[in-house]
Every structure is written in structure tokens, then in C-alpha cells.
Write a protein that binds this DNA or RNA. Structure first.
Length: 589
RNA sequence: GGGGCCGUAGCUCAAUUGGUUAGAGUACCGGACUGUCGAUCCGGGGGUUGCGGGUUCAAGUCCCGUCGGCCUCGCCA
């Protein structure tokens, strides 16, 4: 080893020790006499002092050091004078008096410095990712990520799970997300697809009798990106045989507790709370509620059904509802201009308007308050549990519009009004999802989770009569309003599978063409089984307090799915295309 | 595919209503300085205002297009 210690470990206890450190020059301060260097590695920062009297040759070289040069320093650990301790770094009690210095490598002047106070734009950071990754916040996220996967591996190993790899080159199954395709050289005109998830493989592993499977699995989806979505991402993928829903929830409860413990968070009380889909949709308007704060949705339809305000009355007459929420003590904080902005905000979700009332002098204050008689106003105040200074918002529409709009508004207000501690963690289950959702555009049923999800047994007869009422044996793990895991008990009975496919508009021939290999496998002794996948990247975000998925992935892609460091994707040689039997047909212009 | 924000020195930003030679901090280069830790002080170099076009006596500023980055709706079983 070129070093005896790291830059993060020396303390008072090492006083007098001869050490050799390696690292990057984070900063240097040349006093003409003494030269100070802040030496950084993965573990921390240590101050090195070069003295012209004791080691003039070494000192002369030290004066030439520049940012991000890589050096090896030998010297003795000394205590700093008490008034020169640096409380900002872990090694601030000591410094290393250098008696030898070797420049291991020089650096071009970096385009930005990892210690900079003003971060450069993300484009530059992504191009020089290796410099950005020297910053503690990104380094810490990768460390936390490692701890999480390590905790998961330990946990699964203790519980008898096998880590099994599944193919990256698989068969395209056209539903779900868009596939990333890989052309086959030896099968002209045929393509592999990168896995959107190992879903079908893991079910087949259960048919094979492997019983308990897990994998830290890379998944690929060619869809538009978001702050929390990358084209390739990682799932902690799990499947178990001979289990019922509660068995999965229980095993994942334990995993969550272990992961939180591994990163130094306090253990959640188990079992994690479980809420039905119907309940959270009614109370929060979303299937991934952030329960770190209240501000629940309230239905005032019955109060305003006969009011003078046409928008409310007409909405209710045509089968919609008027629902809203109470932003506590926000009446003064939100000006008309900001409320107009909130109106545009809910408009993004299709809401045609946002009614608001300030609660003032025991009544409602608003441009539309005149449409509500005093009795109605009092009823609204009572129902909304409103106090003077509160600000009430309402959206009148069918639930399909008002729920997402109000849920987004609730999240935004909760954050802006600081209704919760951002360091809190709130983890919960949502269960009893509907098996199908009605696709209005295409006039048909879609699988809410995926087509292999088992119905609640007592609901199976409803498949024939009322598909929309059939509940699924599926479950989502929700953390701080973020979908952090999703799974289900699978269909292991070909007959039930056939009925579900039929409802989804997939006839036998079509099913055979798309999933024949799975259906065939299910006919050879498939055990009852089920599983779940946790979004690793999102867990790292949540536990790091970061809001951007790029910050928890070593080499992420931009919103247009490009890697600015390597230049991927890129055109390829004509010869490569010929070998793959591919002719590129670019759109004109 | 739609909506929004952004692009000026290596970097972070400024530049009045369209008006002088596009500035500051930092980084970089040279010099001074023996206890700094966002060191300090003195001096210096550094610009295709993303790119292309247009309007104008005059464009960093206005208009059109385009490229790139971010946020977001749709999309993501």
C-alpha cells in the first residue's frame, strides 16, 4: 500500500505516529513560509503542513501543488495548538507535519472544484462526473447505497433466499413500458429486449422450485425521464413460494427495518401500518399518500349541493364532487398572486379551477363567498375544522381529476407550510388495489398492477359480473409519499389467468404468442407464489435526503437519456449495422 | 407530444428603456507573506454573450428557428 492511514481517521490518539497519506489536493494555502494542504480522500480531509526550515526541499515541491493533484505525504501526526483546531473536519484536532512528498499525478486545472460553494450547472457536472463524485454528498449517497444493498443481502441470506441472476437479453413483451431493444446478429430481423423487470423469470424460478429468490436487478424502461426516474434503474427484486399476502408484507417489514437500521435511522414500529386503496384515495387522493402530515381531503358536496355557486352545484349534479383541504394558518402567507399560481398548478392536472376561502372573523372571505349563505359558510367552516387564519381550497370535478390535483396541492402545501420534519420517515403499505382500471380512451380494462396479479379469492366471481370491483392481492410500499415498492401474489392457476387475460382483451392466441412460455410453465406444477420489487434508487434518495435520482446513481443519464461523460448514445459504424442487418431510416430534417 | 425555467470569462453571476471599450467574485499565471483552514495583499492574462437567421443607425437585451440542461403534464402493466 502507498499509505498507512486514510485522510479521515487520524485523531489525538495518533499523536506522534509516523504516517503516510495519499489523496487529492483539495486546497492549499501558501504563506511564503508555511504551506498548508487540505488532503482529501474518500474518508475525509487531513491538513498537512510543510515547513521550510525543517524540510526545505519538500517545502519547495509543496509550493508547486495545485487543486486535485494526487500526492503521497509522509510525516508525523501532531496536535494542533488549541486555538487552531478546526471543528469542521473530523481530523481537526491534528495535522501532519510533512517530511516527504511525492507527486503521484498532476491534474489539469479542473473545470470546477469539488469543494466549490456554488455548484456549476448540472451539464458540466455530468460531463466531468469523476470530479463531481469527489464531493462528499455524492460519495455519501453511494456509501449509503452500498449499505442498503449489503443489508438487504444479509437479510435475505439469513431468511433462506437465493440471489439468482436473470437474463439481460430477453424477449420483448409489448405491454407496459417501451422496451430497449438489442438487435440479434445471428437472427436477422429479430431483437432482444432489455428487462423492464425480471418479473416473468422470477415467477418461473418459483415454478422451478427455487422457493425464495432475490436479486439486486437492473431494469430498463424507455420512457420519458423525471427527477425520480432514470431509463435504467435498480430494483431489490423478491419472489417467494407457498406464501400469502401477509407473508410477503411481514418479510418486507423486516427488510425495511433492517435497511433503516443499516443506515442509522431509528427502527420503525412493526408491522408497518396498512391502509386500503379505497381509504387512502378518499383521505389523500392518491395511492401513495405522504402521512408525515395531516391536511386530509374533505368532501363538502352535501353542504354545497344546493348553493348559489354554479360551478359547485353543476359539478355535483353531473355526478362529481366538491372536495378540498384546509391549509392551516396560510391565509396571510398566500397572496392572491400565489393563489393564482396554485390555480395554474392544479390546472396541470386538469382541474378547471381552484376555489379558495380565507377564514376571517368567523366567516369565509373570498371573491365567491357571496354565493354561500351564512349557514352554508358555517357548515363549511365546521366540516373543514377551520380556524381564523386558515386558507381553504376546493376543487369541483369528478374524482379522476380532483384527486390527483388535490393530492399534488396537498403535497406542495405541506412542504411549503413546513407541516412536517423533512428528516422524518413515514413508511406504510397500501393494499386491496383494484385489479383493473377502466381505460376511458380505449374503452377497455387495463391491469392496475400487471396481468399476473391474483385477485382476492372472494372477488373471483366478480370477474364475470363486475370487473371494476375485483380487488387484487397486490400491495405498494409507500415512503414519504413516494412509491418505494410494489408487488402482488401471482396467478398460478392457468384458468384464472385465462379469465384475466380475456378481461384485458387478450385472447388465448394472443396470450400464447406473448406469454406462452410463462403460461406453459404454469401448467407444470406452479406453486402458489408472490413477490415484490423495491426501488433501490428511490430508497437511497429518501434516506439520503436527496431529491434527484441522478445524485444516487454513479453514472446517470440526462433527461434525454444521454450520458454526457461517454457521449452515449452514439452513431455506430456502417459495418456494425450491416452485421446486424439494420438500415437506419432517419426522418427527413 | 404539450407547458415552464435556464444558457454571458474555466466556474458562479451582473450588465438600467435596445445605446460608451460587456463588469465583479472566484479560478488561472507572476510576485509578497511562518499558523492558515472560503488565508491575505499587489500585479497580469482571459469573451464567437450556446448556435443560425431577422428587425434596427445600434442587439447580451427584441423577434423567429435550432442545440443543450433542468422541472413538469401525458407516458412509465
Amino acid at each position: 500500500m502507498l499509505r498507512t492511514h486514510t485522510c479521515g481517521e487520524l485523531t489525538r490518539d495518533h499523536e506522534g505516529t509516523a504516517v503516510t497519506l495519499c489523496g487529492w489536493v483539495q486546497n492549499w494555502r501558501d504563506h511564503g513560509g508555511l504551506v498548508f494542504v487540505d488532503l482529501r480522500d474518500r474518508y475525509g480531509i487531513t491538513q498537512v503542513v510543510f515547513n521550510p526550515q525543517s524540510h526545505p526541499d519538500v517545502h519547495a515541491v509543496a509550493r508547486t501543488l495545485r487543486s486535485e493533484w494526487v500526492i503521497q505525504v509522509s510525516g508525523r501526526v501532531v496536535l494542533r495548538p488549541s486555538d487552531m483546531v478546526n471543528p469542521n473536519i473530523a481530523t481537526g484536532d491534528i495535522e501532519v507535519r510533512a517530511d516527504a512528498l511525492k507527486i503521484l499525478n498532476r491534474s489539469k486545472t479542473p473545470p470546477f472544484e469539488p469543494s466549490a460553494f456554488d455548484l456549476p450547472n448540472e451539464e458540466l457536472r455530468l460531463k466531468y462526473r469523476y470530479i463531481d463524485l469527489r464531493r462528499p454528498v455524492l460519495r455519501d449517497a453511494l456509501v449509503l447505497r452500498h449499505k442498503l444493498t449489503q443489508a438487504a443481502r444479509n437479510y435475505f441470506d439469513r431468511h433462506g433466499f437465493l440471489e439468482i441472476e436473470t437474463p439481460m437479453l430477453g424477449r420483448s413483451t409489448p405491454e407496459g413500458a417501451r422496451d430497449y431493444l438489442v438487435p440479434s446478429r445471428v437472427h436477422p430481423g429479430s431483437f432482444y429486449a432489455l428487462p423492464q423487470s425480471p418479473q416473468l423469470y422470477k415467477q418461473i424460478l418459483m415454478v422451478a422450485g427455487l422457493d425464495r429468490y432475490y436479486q439486486i436487478a437492473r431494469c430498463f424502461r424507455d420512457e420519458d425521464l423525471r427527477a425520480d426516474r432514470q431509463p435504467e434503474f435498480t430494483q431489490i427484486d423478491v419472489e417467494m413460494s407457498f406464501v400469502e399476502r401477509d407473508d410477503i408484507l411481514q418479510i418486507i417489514d423486516g427488510l425495511v427495518a433492517e435497511m433503516l437500521e443499516a443506515v442509522g435511522r431509528s427502527a420503525p414500529s412493526l408491522p408497518l401500518p396498512r391502509y386500503s386503496y379505497a381509504e387512502v384515495m378518499e383521505r389523500f387522493g392518491t395511492d401513495k399518500p405522504d402521512m408525515r402530515f395531516g391536511m386530509e381531503l374533505v368532501d363538502i358536496s352535501s353542504i354545497v349541493a344546493n348553493c348559489e355557486f354554479g360551478v359547485f352545484r353543476n359539478t355535483i349534479e353531473s355526478g362529481g364532487r366538491v372536495r378540498g383541504l384546509n391549509a392551516p394558518q396560510a391565509a396571510e402567507k398566500y397572496s392572491r398572486r400565489i393563489i393564482d399560481e396554485l390555480t395554474r398548478f392544479v390546472g396541470d392536472f386538469g382541474a378547471k379551477g381552484l376555489a379558495f376561502f380565507r377564514v376571517k372573523d368567523g366567516a369565509l372571505d373570498s371573491p365567491i363567498a357571496k354565493f354561500f349563505d351564512s349557514e352554508t359558510q358555517q357548515a363549511i367552516i365546521r366540516t373543514m375544522d377551520a380556524r381564523p387564519g386558515d386558507l381553504l381550497f376546493f376543487v369541483a370535478d369528478k374524482d379522476a381529476v380532483s384527486s390527483p390535483a388535490l393530492a399534488a396541492l396537498r403535497n406542495r402545501l405541506g412542504r411549503e407550510l413546513q407541516l412536517y420534519d423533512p428528516n422524518d420517515l413515514n413508511v406504510l403499505w397500501v393494499i386491496d388495489f383494484p385489479l383493473f382500471g377502466w381505460n376511458e380512451d380505449e374503452r377497455r380494462w387495463d391491469a392496475e398492477h400487471h396481468p399476473f396479479c391474483f385477485p382476492v379469492v372472494e372477488d373471483i366471481p366478480l370477474l364475470e359480473t363486475d370487473p371494476g370491483a375485483v380487488r387484487a392481492q397486490s400491495y405498494d410500499l409507500v415512503c414519504n409519499g413516494c412509491e418505494a415498492g410494489s408487488g402482488s401474489i401471482r396467478i398460478h392457476d392457468p384458468e384464472v389467468q385465462g379469465k384475466v387475460f380475456a378481461l384485458l382483451g387478450i385472447d388465448a392466441a394472443e396470450a400464447e404468442r406473448r406469454f406462452g412460455f410463462l403460461l406453459e410453465a404454469l401448467r407444470y406444477g406452479a406453486p402458489p407464489h408472490g413477490g415484490i420489487a423495491l426501488g433501490l434508487d428511490r430508497w437511497v434518495m429518501l434516506l439520503s435526503g436527496l431529491t434527484n435520482i441522478r445524485d444516487v446513481i454513479a453514472f446517470p443519464k440526462t433527461q434525454r437519456a444521454a450520458d454526457l461523460m461517454t457521449g452515449a448514445p452514439s452513431p455506430v459504424d456502417e459495418r456494425q449495422l450491416r452485421e446486424l442487418h439494420i438500415r437506419v431510416d432517419l426522418p427527413a430534417d
